[in-house]
């Protein structure tokens, strides 16, 4: 099964972060993909991703408006980086795009 990991983080860290998380999780589930999203907000990091989880994923989505902690964990995985607005506005399209990129990468085609 296609496995997606990612991080959501917005400027104040109270609203957009969590709305984006919910929207992406809902969209991924509906499309039948596994997703694990870490949130970095005012309350700190929640649902933290381990290096193992990231390394075993097919693709990562960073829905972020600010610099995030632990960016180096994503050094060896393809990243789709977007503002949280995109994740909130078009979660399904974003997931579909990520999966498309993941598939083309696994075939050795540069996306």
């Amino acid at each position: 099964m296609m496995k997606i990991v990612g991080v959501c983080a917005c400027t104040v860290g109270i609203a957009h972060t969590y709305i984006a998380q919910e929207k992406l999780e809902k969209a991924a589930k509906k499309l039948g993909y596994e997703i694990h999203l870490e949130t970095q907000g005012t309350i700190g990091t929640e649902n933290a991703l381990t290096q193992e989880e990231i390394d075993s994923a097919d693709i990562s989505i960073l829905a972020i408006d600010v610099k995030i902690k632990g960016m180096e964990r994503f050094d060896n995985i393809t990243k789709i980086t977007v503002p949280t607005d995109i994740a909130i506005k078009s979660p399904t399209k974003l997931i579909e795009k990520a999966v498309e990129v993941a598939k083309s990468r696994s075939k050795g085609i540069k996306a």
Binding site: V12, I14, Y18, I19, Q21, E22, K23, T42, I88
Partner: peptide
């Protein structure tokens, strides 16, 4: 949200869960 979020962590956690609901 208060400037100093340290003392308000539990309450802010609730706000975050509340925000999440708005994604539904």
């Amino acid at each position: 949200v208060p400037d100093n979020s340290e003392g308000a962590k539990l309450h802010l956690q609730l706000l975050a869960q509340f925000a999440r609901k708005l994604g539904d």
